[in-house]
Design a binder for these strands. Structure first.
Lengths: 319, 319
DNA sequence: GCAAACAATGATATCGATAACTTGATATCG
DNA sequence: CGATATCAAGTTATCGATATCATTGTTTGC
């Protein structure tokens, strides 16, 4: 920057101001400096700027990304959220520091101005871990009472309710829930589902399955059939589970949806083009990501931010 | 750090050295300082360190992430690569700056020590754009002659060859290729496929399809059938395309694999649990990500790095 | 017993930008 | 016409760490 200053015949500070497009600098000097900078391929040193401003203009996004067959690997979920986040942050001049929850890369995270946590972890453990950093933090997931941090998520409870309403309205009396209620989000879905059914004196069967995979869905239905359970509808906590369930039902000679109704969750493109096209609860991830980003930015700039739940809608297709 | 120095009764520089575990500092002072730092929750200022060291310990990873129905959104592809990259980088003390190719977030990228580019762009445009930054760069994709930068990818040509060999060996004479050869990687697959078939005097039919979606696969087969093309085998450039193709074939009354053999690409978990289980060309993304990371790091540290292609294997299942 | 080697620590300058304050020149007003 | 605003640019200090060179005491070797 000093070199540029010499070239332009002004002082460093004027260059700094000119490049920041500050009105403190005469418009002619300003453009002259900017052009010189472009010609000579001048690149601002971001570290120096960060040091002086005590801001890194960076938000750490922490993703649970296990190299397993768990959902995070190949559901649209994380990427779509990330897309929304990244879109909103870059347009605000921030960048995304991607961190996976494995080694303690805390050193890097603490340089960020704020934290977005995708997935609370099975028992809020992730939340507690990163809360210690003392940075503005926004979490994607379910809101539980007494949370100190801001939570953005979709209205899982309402998702569960809407499926229950649907099942009741088409006369189903023996519903099954497939999923892992250790995840706070899933627990919410289950509660909504159970509560709404209870209003109609229906009690669902809980098939606990930890994985969100297709084969896990297949397995759940086989297990139901083995123990001769009576059921006429299935609410699965992901589209993959639902697709697995349908496959198993078909194999066992059941008709979908005449014998058994099935509803999935996430409304993934894959589910929509499944045969038969899957009914599913839709949540808007893109929007969710953008909201997450806006909330952290608000916190970073010292403004208040409230937790918020995005609406969910039941998309009824052929199952 | 100055405060810590006062607390410990030493100078700043000794604290700095102690925290870096430098042998220049007496082992007792060193541990004393480290303990004080822990007690008082001291956090190193990363920006200051970066400024002084002229290193950000950050690698920019640039992903093409369009909010469309394009493959990148819900194939396992980017996330698995990212997983490998992130794993390798964090364990080397680097962090990942995630950038999507949309707004020119060049300001942030230029702070990185190196760049990993996922996807060359349809006509190498992305490569050229980021080459200008003058940073060490490694690209995931296909190697074309005269590339100045390091390319890591899987051996797409061999992938194509292995499918051709398979088709020939089971007596197929009328193969179809479905995909978009504008992507350099896809072009390689096509060339390998065509060349190997040519050695047996077989000429495949090219069904150009730009999208990598399931419905695109359905559509390709419908189109083949409409124009009454004669074919007995299909090589689709992604598992989704292959699954779409199979669905269309079944709808049209063809038997898979007795009438028509189908092979996909990527060996995704989804394909493996498809009905019938999909034959597919496997490439190891996790490994690819790690390799990308290792190569940039080598470049960043001034060591040479060569382009490298990972092996692919044809996994024959039921199609 | 004294020079040389070594170990432990410190003083200072530096990385590259920007905030806060200051200076000088010109414009505006009663 | 002098006092004050306004504008444009410059001076200096600062963000928090670390490299370089300097200093002090201690040990070793002949």
């Amino acid at each position: 920057m000093a070199d540029l200053a010499d070239l332009a015949g002004v002082s460093k500070i004027t260059v700094s101001r000119a490049l920041a497009d500050s009105p403190l600098v005469n418009i002619r000097t300003r453009t002259r400096v900017q052009e010189l900078a472009r010609e000579h391929g001048y690149k601002l040193n971001v570290s120096a700027r960060n040091l002086r401003l005590r801001r890194s203009h960076t938000i750490a996004v922490i993703v649970e990304m296990k190299p397993s067959s768990d959902r995070t690997m190949w559901d649209p979920y994380p990427l779509t959220l990330l897309g929304g986040i990244s879109q909103e942050l870059t347009s605000a001049g921030y960048s995304v520091l991607l961190t996976t929850r494995q080694g303690s890369s805390a050193a890097a995270v603490q340089a960020a101005d704020g934290v977005i946590l995708l997935g609370q972890g099975v028992r809020q453990d992730a939340v507690r871990l990163y809360d210690k950093l003392g940075l503005p933090m926004v979490v994607w997931g379910a809101k539980s009472v007494g949370d100190s941090h801001v939570v953005v998520g979709s209205d899982n409870r309402h998702g569960g309710i809407s499926v229950a309403e649907r099942f009741v309205s088409i006369g189903r009396r023996h519903p099954v829930f497939i999923g892992n209620p250790d995840h706070p989000e899933i627990a919410e879905r289950l509660h909504g589902f159970v509560d709404e059914l209870a209003r109609h004196n229906v009690k669902p069967l809980l098939m606990r399955r930890d994985e969100f995979t297709l084969s896990s869905g297949v397995d759940a239905v086989h297990s139901l059939s083995r123990r001769k359970a009576r059921f006429d509808s299935i609410f699965a906590c992901s589209d993959l589970l639902a697709m697995g369930a349908i496959r198993a039902l078909v194999e066992l000679g059941h008709q979908v949806p005449s014998d058994v109704s099935v509803v999935g969750y996430d409304d993934s493109p894959l589910g929509a083009s499944f045969l038969p096209p899957l009914s599913s609860v839709r949540q808007n991830w893109q929007e969710g990501g953008m909201l997450l980003a806006r909330k952290v930015l608000a916190l970073v700039e010292g403004q208040p931010a409230e937790s918020e739940m995005l609406p969910t809608t039941l998309v009824v297709r052929a199952t």
